[in-house]
Nucleic acid binder design. Structure first.
Lengths: 210, 210
DNA sequence: AGTTCGCAGTAACATTGGTTACATTCGGCC
DNA sequence: GGCCGAATGTAACCAATGTTACTGCGAACT
């Protein structure tokens, strides 16, 4: 039994299921920035996230993106769950936000375990629930907040994910993820700096007190 | 066996499951406009929608609303599914868009059937999948479209749901559901009328060719 | 018929955010 | 040091949307 599996999912799954996962699952390391799933892809295995973070995007007609949410350790990809069963295409793009480690589980097991293990059902249901809640949060943010508030939330989340007070992004990259323009982001960041909430540097931003 | 159950869910569930649903489920009629679930409510039973339509809302800090999507016959409420298991509160508000008929199933059965019936698992997974896709569509609409396009989509959807070319809403009601102001909606509707796509009347709108 | 009230039309203005254009600065590289 | 390209700063302008304020209309009621 690989230790990471036990550490991350041991409290969720019974020993027998852990054994099965260990047997049929394959480990996979993904480097920061690597595209893990593209819109339109068919999905053939289900990822359990052991470490790192993955960002999930939606795309508009011009090919521009919008960040929906992050997946973290202990999470799984909700798209995968039903894409497997329903044979439908992915509606989203997944990119590694940091270096990440996954266990890939063959899709056939998903449905079998759902019949066999209560803990697996619980995990799957909770995954959906979490994803739905994240979508609600995303919708709240887009529909109810102005860009300056969205930016602050983004910076907070980004800092939390990277476990530090420094965000290594350019203004252009932030603009892509929030689906706006670089000029707008630069403008708002400068305001935050003037409010003494952050300090701006070339290629990175230091969070002070937001 | 009540006929509507068979008509709407007969192709999804095996006979034995249909029997169980019929035995433990209770029928419920809901009149148009009735609030069926409020944000913060705990959920104790799961609705299967037999006829009619239900609209699902999210609320901002000021108590203003945003329409997320509609549920129609054959659908179930995704919130319910995990609220039951996880004992969490509802994140959304549900209001009957039209008169509607439901079967209410006790929550305990949900998890039992998930272990017992493959068809039930399929139904639950597909429900989640559909809801997630509707959330994606909602996000696309809010994030990528301008208000005039959102309004057109709204009118189309509303006409589809009510199965007719007349929408019985005031401008104010439309504004609430799209989370904007009455003046903005009046302005855009007038434009659509000038384009000969709709005709405006007091308390209702006739769709011509949008 | 007159009153009332909710609904709709519209002008004028404010604000937010998107766009264009250009200047400046920083690092890396020769 | 000098050059170059990417990143950032900033002004000026524009389009979309939100806000305020007022008018007029129509249905229902008395």
């Amino acid at each position: 039994m690989i230790q990471e599996l036990k550490n991350n999912f041991g409290h969720l799954f019974e020993a027998e299921l852990l054994q099965e996962i260990n047997q049929v699952g394959t480990y996979k390391d993904v480097a920061e920035g690597v595209k893990m799933m593209e819109i339109g892809d068919y999905v053939r295995s289900m990822p359990l996230l052991i470490s790192g973070a993955i960002k999930i995007f939606r795309e508009d007609n011009n090919g521009d993106e919008l960040l929906l949410y992050f997946l973290e350790k202990g999470d799984t990809c909700a798209m995968t769950l039903t894409c497997c069963l329903g044979q439908t295409k992915s509606e989203i793009r997944a990119i590694a936000e940091t270096d990440a480690t996954l266990i890939m589980v063959p899709v056939e097991k998903m449905e079998i375990w759902a019949g066999k293990y209560k803990s697996w059902r619980k995990f799957v249901f909770e995954s959906y629930h979490n994803r739905l809640n994240e979508m609600f949060a995303t919708i709240d943010s887009i529909a109810f907040l102005k860009m300056d508030e969205r930016l602050v939330n983004y910076l907070k989340e980004k800092a939390r994910i990277s476990e530090g007070a420094i965000i290594y992004s350019t203004h252009q990259e932030i603009a892509y993820e929030l689906h706006t323009s670089r000029v707008v982001i630069s403008r708002l960041l400068k305001k935050l700096e003037n409010l003494n909430k952050i300090t701006l540097h070339r290629n990175h931003i230091v969070i002070k007190n937001i």
